[in-house]
Design a binder for these strands. Sequence first.
DNA 1: ATCTGTGGCCACCAGC
DNA 2: GCTGGTGGCCAC
Length: 853
Amino acid sequence: MVASGSNSLSDRIKEALRDTTALNLSLLVSASYDGELKAAILKFYDLDSQRIRLWYDKSGHKPYCYSRLPVQDIPEEVKKRSDVLELKEEKKRDLLNDRDINVTKIVATDPLAIGGSPGERSIRDRIEAWEADIKYYENFLYDKGWVVGTYYRIDDSNISPLEYEMSGEVKVVLEGILNGAKPDFRPYIMGWAKLLNQPLPEIRRVALDIEVLSEEQNRVPDPRTANLPIISAALVGSDGTKEVLLLRRKEVELGKRALDENVQIEIFDDEKSLISRIFHRILDYPFLLTFNGDDFDLHYLYNRAQRSQFGFTKDEIPISMGRDVAFVKPGVHIDLYKTFVNKSIQVYAFGNKYVDHTLGGVSEGLIQESKIEFEGAMNDLSLHELARYCFNDAWITYKLTSFSDDLLMKLLLVVSRIAKMPVDDAARLGVSNWIRSMMFFEHRRMGALIPRKEELEAKGGASTEAIIKGKKYKGGLVVEPTSGVHFGVAVLDFASLYPSIIKVYNLSYETVRCPHEECKSNLIPETDHWVCTRRIGVSSLLFGSLRDLRVNYYKPLVRDPRLGKTQKELYNVVSQALKVILNASYGVMGADIFPLYCLPVADATAAIGRYAITKTIDKCKELGIEVVYGDTDSLFLETPSEDQIKAVRDWAESTLGIELDAEKTYRYVAFSQRKKNYLGVLPDGNVDVKGLTGKKSHVPPFIRKAFYDAVEILSRVSSPSDFERARDEIKKMIHQTYLSLRNRQIPLSDLAFNVMISKPLSRYVDTTPQHVKAAQLLMRNGKEVKAGEIISFVKTTTPPGVKPVSMAKVEEIDNDKYLEYLRSTFDQFLDALGYEFDEILGATKLEDFFWSR
DNA sequence: ATCTGTGGCCACCAGC
DNA sequence: GCTGGTGGCCAC
């Protein structure tokens, strides 16, 4: 059973890879499991043919992850802990019948998560055997420019793209970082740079959207029954394909053509031909894009096609369903809905530019495109109108992956390279899974054991108490702001504070509270945790090296004028991806769903963070600088001199070992008495607004607009004497706003609060918030409301005091409530400038002020 | 069904 | 009317 000879798995892999420049999407290993593992599958994307290729071996050799152990020899203990997949009979037949295989994922899932301490001899033996294989395959792939996950193959005879990319000054930068790093970190930094500097390919892809006849208006057809006909489908491809497929129905008219000539429209007389065409088109592309295809489009197609009336055989349906995933064989299906729901993507990659997780919501936020609205029911649309609607959805879906030079596709590729994960997984799974995959890969590469959950739990919990009830440990420090207006405030912040701490203080699950007696005196401030002095932790190495690269290499390169556009774009995408991963690196340590969850690590990280900022504040005081505010990793200093700033920074660098950046200097900052609430005006007139109610996404647009008008007025203030004039302007503006409210001139949509339903309606048991009340009214009107949707409602004088915008009339608006909200928004806002709302208005009550004008 | 963390502010609900 | 708790959104 040893893999050797010309028929061995390794040789076959080599052979398969030899003549192709390919991007390996995923090394998926499939197996039949009847005593021994039968076959392995390699799935990769061939750049030459622009197709997904499957290659598999059924010669009887085991997937590499099981080393040389026949399955029956794998100890029970291991079997229980490893994810050996029991294949269904059907799949086994597929494997043995030499047919195209629906790739089954086991994927090298932690086969050696045997646990126990590294000292256990018997296990050690097995690891050695395993190591030999893993080294063989992974080194083979890795060193040849492949990585399990997503890689370029770099031909030995060519200059490696790294060297090509890294010419002159850029190379000097990297060398500088390498020289500055501790020796243990150097190979990691080099490895990442090598991997991440590989060019990003263009991915040939097609977006699909289908429409189904609906039973009732507002009801989404049920993909499980798939009992209604598919009436249209639209395909938009990266090769310029624009295609709509329609089903002729006698009850609706054709109508007038509503789409451009360059969109191909084809009308089918029967549904089977339409479906069949969809299937054929899907197979033309390696990547299929949908928005919610896992739950709807592909699921519906899959079940619809199986109905006996059509007589499709299994082989003719190129879709297969996982539990929550739709696969397309042999390509890759990316459900963008899942990507955009990912909070890390939303916040860090797209800067919160969208809030609503619907296709319309995301595309309005990112690409200024909307869904097409129509009156009445979808069923009644003429065929051409339907075509226009359906095409638009597919077009938007495609565009979400193509805007900013294919930004999203590139981001997913980079994430998949860092995370050692297939692209479709990267697109579906959250950041904790990315980091899990990345860390497990590193364990395998090192030949290290992956600890069990219980082993990590044995380290104990947090040694601090959280400030917020119900949290597990104490987090970042927020300095009480000195209220009032401050001119010339400098903001200093620690660059990537938590990842820096993880690096500098050697934090990792195996180094915090390590078993060595001599380390126990190496205490972490404010806690009773200690850190290992003998060895460097794996998460410290991984996150530390990524941090160094982002802070010292990619971030500066993005701004480097010596580089061309293409290179800058690559660096920018890489920098974004690193930001996402680094930001989560500390969080996952304190998340119990994370397989390497280790509370002491999260606890220690936050504690050192508080220590760092506290010590820095002390130092500032010592230097005679006043600290007017600070939050977690930032300090706001009142008019410090250049020398003072330099002194603090040098001190932080030398004493704490963490870089302290001079981030910006405000022309002035206005603090209220509240934490996380301020307004800062930059020298160029740009304004940072933080935490103030007026900017929050749920407040009615007319209030937000008035708020930003006021901000604009304040941005023109440059000296204390300007405030007087600004105050008058703001006063007038608010008065205008009030008048239009009183005269009911504000359209309903501008009066709407927009609040997200964050869980199924039935789970709101403790209280019934207003947006839930509005949602209940919608439900009663026959509209479905799902978790994640944003509810637009207005406040009314009629019970229960709120109504969905769609059901409300202007006359029912409760003007008093809105006035109150306007007042409190501005009160808080003007409070930041040091005066009371009523006070500037010179009236005891807001009402008095308005009526007296 | 899925899922990085804590700190902070605000409005509203529900029980007293 | 007061108050603790819930829910949402934001800062970092």
